[in-house]
Simulated scan of single mutants.
Amino acid sequence: MSVFGTPEDFARALENLRAPDAAVRAKAAERQAQLTKPPGSLGRLEDIAIFMAGWQGRERPRVERARTAIFAGNHGVTAHGVSTFPASVTVQMVANFHAGGAAINALSEAAGLELRVIALELDTPTADFTVAPAMSEAECPAALNAGADVVTGDLDLLVVGEMGIGNSTAAAALCARSFGGAAADWVGPGTGVDASGVARKADVVARALAFHADAPATAFETLRRVGGREIAAISGAVVRARQLGVPVVLDGFISGSAVAPLAAVNPAIAEHCIAGHCSAEPGHAALLARLGLEPLLSLGMRLGEGSGAAVAVGIIRAALAAHDGMATFAEAQVSGSL
């Protein structure tokens, strides 16, 4: 399926964003006010339930069919030594996902999430974006549509994650081009590079930004020029989920960076998203602030793979269980309110 056949299709989808059901949100908020607890006493769990109700269009939202989508891609920018691991690790980790041996396999199972792994032309890394666009004008829509294809209207929730050696460098470039700031403001250790490695990454990002400085500041062009296939796929999944009214749980810095070019054009794009956690990658907190998202968890995680988002699904399930399962004051025959 080709939802985003052209850059113009993608731009139109980003301009015309679906809104949550305000009437259902109001009913969910009314139910929260009637439950046997002091108002607001469940804190953000109440907000999550109302959020989910609005996007699902159900006063009592549920998570019966939920999916983790992990996108994998390789990056030509690894030629500059921006990672402690070679690009071949991407292929090896995808094999590990399929074999069931990765963290995301265990965490998705624990969270009741169906896991899909989408490998995107791993034998053909993107171009070195310090000297050329990362993707051609045909490759970028293909990646966007690979993401859109994993989203179906029957999903109650979508978790997005990634795997790609070198993609924290691409993520930093995407954030810097989308929101400004110096390259050094957005780079971090990624897979564990030392201080000299971080400095090298910052130099690579700065060179990429300079090379593409005159390119159009559209979401499509930013993704095409300094992104990666797996990151563009997450962007496509996020926009398609918005079209279908499916709430999305973002993982860490890299999956969040897929939203950065979108939010730079239309900040409302993040409104159907939940930040699963704040990772240990230094740029992630700044990115979440720019997206207007408050993370559910802060556990010092920095693995990627959708791992932090999968853990956060347990919090979302708890919020919906309380919203649906608690008695109202009338049902419990409790007089007045607490």
Rank of each mutant, 00 (worst) to 15 (best):
A208D: 04
I70W: 01
L113E: 01
C175V: 08
G40I: 06
V187R: 00
G57Q: 12
V187C: 04
A132N: 09
N145C: 03
H272C: 05
A110Q: 14
E294R: 15
F179R: 09
G101Q: 06
L14N: 00
D154E: 14
T328K: 10
V198Q: 04
L174R: 01
V193C: 09
V150N: 01
A213P: 08
M52A: 13
A232P: 04
V313H: 01
R60K: 14
A171D: 02
R116M: 09
Q333G: 11
A232K: 01
L35K: 04
E8H: 13
V151Q: 04
R317G: 03
A270Q: 03
A148K: 03
S337G: 12
R31Q: 06
P267N: 12
R224V: 01
H75R: 05
V334F: 15
H212A: 08
A219K: 01
N105Q: 03
T84D: 12
N16K: 14
N167A: 10
A22N: 06
A237W: 04
A280L: 13
F329S: 03
G283K: 00
L115A: 12
T36G: 07
N266V: 06
A13K: 02
V198C: 01
A280M: 11
P39G: 11
S255H: 04
R58L: 12
A321G: 07
C273L: 13
R58E: 13
A106M: 14
T218G: 11
G306P: 02
Q243N: 08
A26C: 10
M1H: 13
L209S: 02
